[in-house]
Nucleic acid binder design. Sequence first.
DNA 1: TCTCCATACTCAACAAATAAGTACACAAAA
DNA 2: TTTTGTGTACTTATTTGTTGAGTATGGAGA
Lengths: 181, 181
Amino acid sequence: MSPMVRRPPGIELALLGFLRAGPQHGYQIHQILSSHDGLGLVWHLKQSQLYALLTKLEKDGYITSVLQNQEPYPPRRVFTLTSSGSKAYLGWLTSPVALPRLVRQEFLAKLYFLRGENGSAELLITRQREICQRWLDDFKRQAAQCARGSYGWLTFQYRIGHIESIIAWLEICRQNFPESR
Amino acid sequence: MSPMVRRPPGIELALLGFLRAGPQHGYQIHQILSSHDGLGLVWHLKQSQLYALLTKLEKDGYITSVLQNQEPYPPRRVFTLTSSGSKAYLGWLTSPVALPRLVRQEFLAKLYFLRGENGSAELLITRQREICQRWLDDFKRQAAQCARGSYGWLTFQYRIGHIESIIAWLEICRQNFPESR
DNA sequence: TCTCCATACTCAACAAATAAGTACACAAAA
DNA sequence: TTTTGTGTACTTATTTGTTGAGTATGGAGA
Protein backbone atom coordinates (compact mmCIF):
# COMPACT_ATOMS: atom_id res chain seq x y z
CA MET A 1 0.00 0.00 0.00
CA SER A 2 1.29 3.41 -0.88
CA PRO A 3 0.83 6.10 1.76
CA MET A 4 -2.87 6.81 1.29
CA VAL A 5 -3.42 10.40 2.32
CA ARG A 6 -0.59 12.80 1.51
CA ARG A 7 -1.71 16.40 1.82
CA PRO A 8 -5.13 17.75 2.68
CA PRO A 9 -7.12 18.11 -0.52
CA GLY A 10 -7.94 21.67 -1.43
CA ILE A 11 -9.78 23.55 -4.07
CA GLU A 12 -8.08 21.62 -6.84
CA LEU A 13 -10.74 18.96 -6.39
CA ALA A 14 -13.15 21.45 -7.89
CA LEU A 15 -11.54 20.75 -11.24
CA LEU A 16 -13.02 17.28 -11.08
CA GLY A 17 -16.41 18.93 -11.37
CA PHE A 18 -15.60 19.71 -14.97
CA LEU A 19 -15.11 16.03 -15.70
CA ARG A 20 -18.40 14.83 -14.23
CA ALA A 21 -20.21 15.33 -17.51
CA GLY A 22 -17.56 13.40 -19.39
CA PRO A 23 -13.86 13.48 -20.33
CA GLN A 24 -12.36 16.86 -20.87
CA HIS A 25 -9.00 18.33 -21.82
CA GLY A 26 -7.00 20.98 -20.04
CA TYR A 27 -7.24 23.67 -22.64
CA GLN A 28 -11.03 23.52 -22.61
CA ILE A 29 -11.16 23.72 -18.82
CA HIS A 30 -8.92 26.73 -19.01
CA GLN A 31 -11.26 28.34 -21.52
CA ILE A 32 -14.18 27.88 -19.16
CA LEU A 33 -12.23 29.20 -16.20
CA SER A 34 -10.87 32.23 -18.02
CA SER A 35 -14.20 33.53 -19.18
CA HIS A 36 -15.12 35.88 -16.37
CA ASP A 37 -18.40 34.42 -15.38
CA GLY A 38 -19.23 31.22 -13.55
CA LEU A 39 -16.37 29.74 -11.57
CA GLY A 40 -13.95 32.05 -13.34
CA LEU A 41 -15.33 34.83 -11.14
CA VAL A 42 -13.83 33.35 -8.02
CA TRP A 43 -10.94 31.25 -9.25
CA HIS A 44 -8.32 32.64 -11.58
CA LEU A 45 -5.87 30.08 -12.84
CA LYS A 46 -2.99 30.58 -15.21
CA GLN A 47 -2.77 27.95 -17.90
CA SER A 48 0.46 26.51 -16.61
CA GLN A 49 -0.94 26.32 -13.12
CA LEU A 50 -4.00 24.46 -14.33
CA TYR A 51 -1.87 21.89 -16.13
CA ALA A 52 0.22 21.49 -12.98
CA LEU A 53 -2.91 20.82 -10.94
CA LEU A 54 -4.20 18.31 -13.48
CA THR A 55 -0.87 16.50 -13.34
CA LYS A 56 -1.13 16.42 -9.58
CA LEU A 57 -4.68 15.10 -9.66
CA GLU A 58 -3.55 12.37 -12.00
CA LYS A 59 -0.63 11.48 -9.74
CA ASP A 60 -3.09 11.22 -6.87
CA GLY A 61 -5.21 8.80 -8.86
CA TYR A 62 -8.26 11.02 -9.19
CA ILE A 63 -8.07 11.21 -12.96
CA THR A 64 -6.44 9.34 -15.82
CA SER A 65 -5.42 10.76 -19.13
CA VAL A 66 -4.94 9.69 -22.72
CA LEU A 67 -3.32 11.62 -25.50
CA GLN A 68 -5.78 12.21 -28.29
CA ASN A 69 -4.68 13.13 -31.79
CA GLN A 70 -6.61 15.91 -33.44
CA GLU A 71 -4.85 16.44 -36.74
CA PRO A 72 -3.98 18.95 -37.86
CA TYR A 73 -4.33 20.50 -34.42
CA PRO A 74 -1.98 19.75 -31.54
CA PRO A 75 -2.86 16.56 -29.65
CA ARG A 76 -4.99 16.93 -26.56
CA ARG A 77 -4.51 15.22 -23.25
CA VAL A 78 -8.00 14.13 -22.33
CA PHE A 79 -8.73 13.52 -18.67
CA THR A 80 -11.27 11.10 -17.26
CA LEU A 81 -12.54 10.87 -13.71
CA THR A 82 -11.62 7.66 -11.90
CA SER A 83 -13.95 6.14 -9.34
CA SER A 84 -11.56 7.30 -6.63
CA GLY A 85 -11.77 10.76 -8.11
CA SER A 86 -15.52 10.63 -8.24
CA LYS A 87 -15.65 9.68 -4.59
CA ALA A 88 -13.18 12.40 -3.59
CA TYR A 89 -15.12 14.95 -5.58
CA LEU A 90 -18.48 14.13 -4.02
CA GLY A 91 -16.90 14.23 -0.59
CA TRP A 92 -15.39 17.60 -1.31
CA LEU A 93 -18.55 18.96 -2.88
CA THR A 94 -20.78 18.22 0.07
CA SER A 95 -18.42 19.25 2.88
CA PRO A 96 -18.49 22.74 4.33
CA VAL A 97 -15.17 24.55 4.40
CA ALA A 98 -13.15 24.42 7.58
CA LEU A 99 -11.68 27.92 7.68
CA PRO A 100 -13.24 31.35 7.25
CA ARG A 101 -10.81 32.34 4.54
CA LEU A 102 -11.94 29.42 2.39
CA VAL A 103 -15.52 30.64 2.18
CA ARG A 104 -14.91 33.22 -0.50
CA GLN A 105 -13.32 30.90 -3.00
CA GLU A 106 -13.86 27.30 -2.05
CA PHE A 107 -17.38 27.49 -0.69
CA LEU A 108 -18.43 29.47 -3.73
CA ALA A 109 -16.82 26.83 -5.93
CA LYS A 110 -18.88 24.13 -4.28
CA LEU A 111 -21.97 26.21 -4.76
CA TYR A 112 -21.10 26.62 -8.40
CA PHE A 113 -21.22 22.90 -8.99
CA LEU A 114 -24.22 22.38 -6.73
CA ARG A 115 -26.51 24.65 -8.74
CA GLY A 116 -29.20 22.43 -10.16
CA GLU A 117 -28.49 19.56 -7.77
CA ASN A 118 -31.82 19.71 -6.02
CA GLY A 119 -31.57 20.32 -2.32
CA SER A 120 -27.84 19.63 -2.00
CA ALA A 121 -26.98 23.31 -1.95
CA GLU A 122 -29.51 23.89 0.79
CA LEU A 123 -27.93 21.14 2.88
CA LEU A 124 -24.42 22.49 2.36
CA ILE A 125 -25.52 25.99 3.27
CA THR A 126 -27.07 24.70 6.47
CA ARG A 127 -23.96 22.81 7.45
CA GLN A 128 -21.72 25.75 6.64
CA ARG A 129 -23.95 28.00 8.69
CA GLU A 130 -23.51 25.72 11.70
CA ILE A 131 -19.77 25.86 11.36
CA CYS A 132 -19.89 29.62 11.07
CA GLN A 133 -21.83 29.72 14.32
CA ARG A 134 -19.07 27.76 16.00
CA TRP A 135 -16.44 30.15 14.65
CA LEU A 136 -18.50 33.05 15.86
CA ASP A 137 -18.95 31.68 19.37
CA ASP A 138 -15.27 30.93 19.52
CA PHE A 139 -14.18 34.39 18.42
CA LYS A 140 -16.63 36.02 20.78
CA ARG A 141 -15.26 33.98 23.63
CA GLN A 142 -11.73 35.00 22.73
CA ALA A 143 -12.68 38.63 22.29
CA ALA A 144 -14.22 38.60 25.74
CA GLN A 145 -10.86 37.59 27.16
CA CYS A 146 -9.22 40.70 25.76
CA ALA A 147 -9.44 44.12 27.26
CA ARG A 148 -12.06 46.12 25.40
CA GLY A 149 -10.32 48.36 22.88
CA SER A 150 -7.02 46.49 23.08
CA TYR A 151 -5.23 45.28 19.98
CA GLY A 152 -6.30 41.70 20.55
CA TRP A 153 -9.89 42.78 21.03
CA LEU A 154 -9.81 44.70 17.75
CA THR A 155 -8.47 41.73 15.81
CA PHE A 156 -11.31 39.59 17.11
CA GLN A 157 -13.84 42.29 16.29
CA TYR A 158 -12.64 42.06 12.72
CA ARG A 159 -13.16 38.32 12.64
CA ILE A 160 -16.54 38.56 14.33
CA GLY A 161 -17.75 41.11 11.82
CA HIS A 162 -16.49 38.98 8.98
CA ILE A 163 -18.23 35.83 10.19
CA GLU A 164 -21.45 37.72 10.81
CA SER A 165 -21.34 39.00 7.26
CA ILE A 166 -20.83 35.46 6.03
CA ILE A 167 -23.80 34.21 8.02
CA ALA A 168 -26.01 36.94 6.58
CA TRP A 169 -24.76 36.09 3.12
CA LEU A 170 -25.46 32.40 3.60
CA GLU A 171 -29.08 33.32 4.19
CA ILE A 172 -29.08 35.23 0.93
CA CYS A 173 -27.63 32.12 -0.69
CA ARG A 174 -30.36 29.99 0.77
CA GLN A 175 -33.07 32.25 -0.55
CA ASN A 176 -31.57 32.04 -3.99
CA PHE A 177 -31.36 28.25 -4.11
CA PRO A 178 -34.90 27.64 -2.78
CA GLU A 179 -35.38 24.15 -4.18
CA SER A 180 -34.64 24.01 -7.86
CA ARG A 181 -32.37 25.82 -10.22
CA MET B 1 22.30 51.23 -11.02
CA SER B 2 20.77 47.95 -10.11
CA PRO B 3 17.15 47.50 -11.13
CA MET B 4 15.50 49.59 -8.43
CA VAL B 5 12.11 48.05 -7.84
CA ARG B 6 11.97 44.28 -8.09
CA ARG B 7 8.75 42.94 -6.62
CA PRO B 8 5.98 44.87 -4.89
CA PRO B 9 6.80 45.12 -1.20
CA GLY B 10 4.44 43.20 1.02
CA ILE B 11 3.89 42.56 4.66
CA GLU B 12 7.56 41.71 5.19
CA LEU B 13 8.18 45.43 5.61
CA ALA B 14 6.31 45.11 8.89
CA LEU B 15 9.39 43.37 10.28
CA LEU B 16 11.21 46.67 10.00
CA GLY B 17 8.88 47.95 12.69
CA PHE B 18 10.72 45.78 15.18
CA LEU B 19 13.97 47.52 14.37
CA ARG B 20 12.70 51.07 14.84
CA ALA B 21 13.54 51.06 18.53
CA GLY B 22 17.05 49.81 17.83
CA PRO B 23 18.97 46.83 16.40
CA GLN B 24 17.44 43.46 16.91
CA HIS B 25 18.23 39.82 16.09
CA GLY B 26 16.07 37.28 14.35
CA TYR B 27 15.54 34.98 17.24
CA GLN B 28 14.16 37.78 19.37
CA ILE B 29 11.77 38.91 16.65
CA HIS B 30 10.58 35.36 16.37
CA GLN B 31 9.98 35.25 20.11
CA ILE B 32 7.79 38.33 19.92
CA LEU B 33 5.90 37.03 16.92
CA SER B 34 5.29 33.60 18.41
CA SER B 35 3.75 34.82 21.63
CA HIS B 36 0.09 34.86 20.72
CA ASP B 37 -0.67 38.44 21.48
CA GLY B 38 0.25 41.57 19.63
CA LEU B 39 1.24 41.06 16.03
CA GLY B 40 1.53 37.34 16.64
CA LEU B 41 -2.26 37.26 16.61
CA VAL B 42 -2.44 38.07 12.95
CA TRP B 43 0.88 36.94 11.53
CA HIS B 44 2.25 33.49 12.15
CA LEU B 45 5.76 32.97 10.90
CA LYS B 46 7.87 29.85 11.15
CA GLN B 47 11.40 30.53 12.28
CA SER B 48 12.96 29.53 8.98
CA GLN B 49 10.55 31.73 7.12
CA LEU B 50 11.42 34.70 9.28
CA TYR B 51 15.13 34.27 8.66
CA ALA B 52 14.43 34.00 4.95
CA LEU B 53 12.52 37.28 5.02
CA LEU B 54 15.28 39.00 6.96
CA THR B 55 17.80 37.80 4.40
CA LYS B 56 15.60 39.19 1.67
CA LEU B 57 15.21 42.54 3.42
CA GLU B 58 18.96 42.74 3.74
CA LYS B 59 19.44 41.89 0.07
CA ASP B 60 17.01 44.70 -0.75
CA GLY B 61 19.08 47.12 1.29
CA TYR B 62 16.48 47.82 3.97
CA ILE B 63 18.59 46.41 6.77
CA THR B 64 22.21 45.55 7.45
CA SER B 65 23.50 42.90 9.79
CA VAL B 66 26.52 42.13 11.91
CA LEU B 67 27.38 38.90 13.63
CA GLN B 68 27.60 39.41 17.35
CA ASN B 69 29.40 36.97 19.61
CA GLN B 70 27.59 36.06 22.81
CA GLU B 71 29.80 33.44 24.44
CA PRO B 72 28.97 30.91 25.47
CA TYR B 73 25.73 31.23 23.50
CA PRO B 74 25.53 30.94 19.73
CA PRO B 75 26.40 34.16 17.90
CA ARG B 76 23.51 36.39 16.93
CA ARG B 77 23.00 38.16 13.67
CA VAL B 78 21.92 41.63 14.68
CA PHE B 79 19.96 43.67 12.15
CA THR B 80 19.90 47.44 11.86
CA LEU B 81 17.52 49.57 9.85
CA THR B 82 19.15 51.51 7.00
CA SER B 83 17.84 54.91 5.98
CA SER B 84 16.41 53.30 2.87
CA GLY B 85 14.67 50.79 5.13
CA SER B 86 13.36 53.52 7.36
CA LYS B 87 11.89 55.32 4.39
CA ALA B 88 10.33 52.16 2.99
CA TYR B 89 8.90 51.32 6.38
CA LEU B 90 7.27 54.69 6.91
CA GLY B 91 5.81 54.55 3.42
CA TRP B 92 4.40 51.13 4.09
CA LEU B 93 3.12 52.04 7.52
CA THR B 94 1.08 55.00 6.38
CA SER B 95 -0.39 53.52 3.19
CA PRO B 96 -3.77 51.83 3.18
CA VAL B 97 -3.86 48.33 1.73
CA ALA B 98 -4.87 47.95 -1.89
CA LEU B 99 -6.87 44.73 -1.76
CA PRO B 100 -9.69 43.56 0.51
CA ARG B 101 -7.88 40.37 1.42
CA LEU B 102 -4.96 42.37 2.81
CA VAL B 103 -7.07 44.09 5.44
CA ARG B 104 -7.13 41.21 7.87
CA GLN B 105 -3.40 40.77 8.11
CA GLU B 106 -1.58 43.72 6.64
CA PHE B 107 -3.85 46.54 7.73
CA LEU B 108 -3.90 45.11 11.23
CA ALA B 109 -0.11 44.91 11.14
CA LYS B 110 0.10 48.61 10.32
CA LEU B 111 -2.32 49.38 13.10
CA TYR B 112 -0.15 47.36 15.45
CA PHE B 113 2.81 49.62 14.86
CA LEU B 114 0.74 52.78 14.76
CA ARG B 115 -0.57 52.37 18.29
CA GLY B 116 0.81 55.22 20.26
CA GLU B 117 1.76 57.27 17.21
CA ASN B 118 -0.63 60.10 17.88
CA GLY B 119 -3.12 60.69 15.11
CA SER B 120 -1.42 58.55 12.48
CA ALA B 121 -3.77 55.63 13.04
CA GLU B 122 -6.73 57.94 12.64
CA LEU B 123 -5.38 59.15 9.30
CA LEU B 124 -4.71 55.63 8.04
CA ILE B 125 -8.17 54.51 9.05
CA THR B 126 -9.70 57.40 7.15
CA ARG B 127 -7.73 56.67 4.04
CA GLN B 128 -8.52 52.97 4.22
CA ARG B 129 -12.17 53.77 4.65
CA GLU B 130 -12.13 55.79 1.45
CA ILE B 131 -10.61 52.93 -0.45
CA CYS B 132 -13.20 50.58 1.00
CA GLN B 133 -15.90 52.88 -0.29
CA ARG B 134 -14.43 52.65 -3.76
CA TRP B 135 -14.36 48.84 -3.55
CA LEU B 136 -17.93 48.88 -2.39
CA ASP B 137 -19.17 51.13 -5.17
CA ASP B 138 -17.33 49.01 -7.67
CA PHE B 139 -18.77 45.73 -6.42
CA LYS B 140 -22.25 47.20 -6.26
CA ARG B 141 -21.94 48.35 -9.83
CA GLN B 142 -20.81 44.91 -10.92
CA ALA B 143 -23.52 43.19 -8.90
CA ALA B 144 -26.10 45.37 -10.59
CA GLN B 145 -24.97 44.02 -13.93
CA CYS B 146 -25.76 40.47 -12.89
CA ALA B 147 -29.19 38.94 -12.84
CA ARG B 148 -30.51 39.01 -9.29
CA GLY B 149 -30.01 35.59 -7.75
CA SER B 150 -27.52 34.45 -10.40
CA TYR B 151 -24.18 32.95 -9.48
CA GLY B 152 -22.32 36.13 -10.38
CA TRP B 153 -24.74 38.19 -8.33
CA LEU B 154 -24.17 35.94 -5.32
CA THR B 155 -20.40 36.24 -5.55
CA PHE B 156 -20.69 40.02 -5.52
CA GLN B 157 -23.10 39.90 -2.61
CA TYR B 158 -20.39 38.09 -0.68
CA ARG B 159 -17.86 40.76 -1.46
CA ILE B 160 -20.28 43.57 -0.71
CA GLY B 161 -21.10 42.08 2.68
CA HIS B 162 -17.44 41.64 3.43
CA ILE B 163 -16.53 45.22 2.58
CA GLU B 164 -19.47 46.56 4.56
CA SER B 165 -18.28 44.59 7.56
CA ILE B 166 -14.81 46.05 7.11
CA ILE B 167 -16.20 49.58 6.97
CA ALA B 168 -18.17 49.02 10.16
CA TRP B 169 -15.06 47.59 11.78
CA LEU B 170 -12.95 50.55 10.71
CA GLU B 171 -15.34 52.75 12.66
CA ILE B 172 -14.81 50.56 15.70
CA CYS B 173 -11.08 50.99 15.14
CA ARG B 174 -11.42 54.72 14.98
CA GLN B 175 -13.29 54.84 18.25
CA ASN B 176 -10.55 52.85 19.89
CA PHE B 177 -7.71 55.04 18.70
CA PRO B 178 -9.33 58.38 19.56
CA GLU B 179 -6.20 60.48 19.86
CA SER B 180 -3.69 58.94 22.20
CA ARG B 181 -2.68 55.43 23.17
C1' DT C 1 3.29 37.79 -47.86
C1' DC C 2 3.19 39.04 -43.30
C1' DT C 3 1.10 39.37 -39.11
C1' DC C 4 -1.93 37.93 -35.80
C1' DC C 5 -4.71 34.86 -33.31
C1' DA C 6 -6.39 30.22 -31.93
C1' DT C 7 -5.12 25.55 -30.52
C1' DA C 8 -2.75 22.81 -27.02
C1' DC C 9 0.67 21.80 -23.98
C1' DT C 10 5.64 22.14 -21.96
C1' DC C 11 9.46 23.88 -19.49
C1' DA C 12 12.81 26.37 -16.89
C1' DA C 13 13.33 29.47 -13.37
C1' DC C 14 12.24 31.69 -9.45
C1' DA C 15 9.76 32.28 -4.96
C1' DA C 16 7.66 30.58 -0.80
C1' DA C 17 7.07 27.25 2.83
C1' DT C 18 8.13 23.41 5.76
C1' DA C 19 10.52 20.08 8.34
C1' DA C 20 14.43 18.98 10.03
C1' DG C 21 19.05 19.60 11.49
C1' DT C 22 23.10 21.74 14.01
C1' DA C 23 25.53 22.80 18.13
C1' DC C 24 26.18 24.11 22.49
C1' DA C 25 24.62 25.40 27.45
C1' DC C 26 22.25 24.60 31.38
C1' DA C 27 19.01 22.46 34.61
C1' DA C 28 16.35 18.93 36.35
C1' DA C 29 15.23 14.17 36.63
C1' DA C 30 16.55 9.29 36.83
C1' DT D 1 26.13 10.50 37.35
C1' DT D 2 24.08 9.73 33.24
C1' DT D 3 20.26 11.03 30.69
C1' DT D 4 16.72 13.81 29.17
C1' DG D 5 14.75 17.99 28.21
C1' DT D 6 14.70 22.83 27.19
C1' DG D 7 16.50 27.30 25.67
C1' DT D 8 19.51 29.88 22.44
C1' DA D 9 20.33 30.94 17.62
C1' DC D 10 20.66 30.06 12.99
C1' DT D 11 21.10 26.81 8.62
C1' DT D 12 19.87 23.66 5.13
C1' DA D 13 17.54 20.56 2.03
C1' DT D 14 13.40 19.52 -0.01
C1' DT D 15 9.07 20.23 -1.63
C1' DT D 16 5.57 22.94 -3.45
C1' DG D 17 3.69 26.96 -5.80
C1' DT D 18 3.77 30.34 -9.41
C1' DT D 19 5.14 32.75 -13.36
C1' DG D 20 6.61 33.90 -17.80
C1' DA D 21 7.96 32.34 -21.77
C1' DG D 22 8.43 28.94 -25.27
C1' DT D 23 6.93 25.48 -28.93
C1' DA D 24 4.64 24.06 -33.06
C1' DT D 25 1.05 24.36 -36.28
C1' DG D 26 -3.07 26.08 -38.99
C1' DG D 27 -5.98 29.47 -40.74
C1' DA D 28 -7.98 34.28 -41.22
C1' DG D 29 -7.45 38.66 -42.52
C1' DA D 30 -4.43 43.03 -44.17
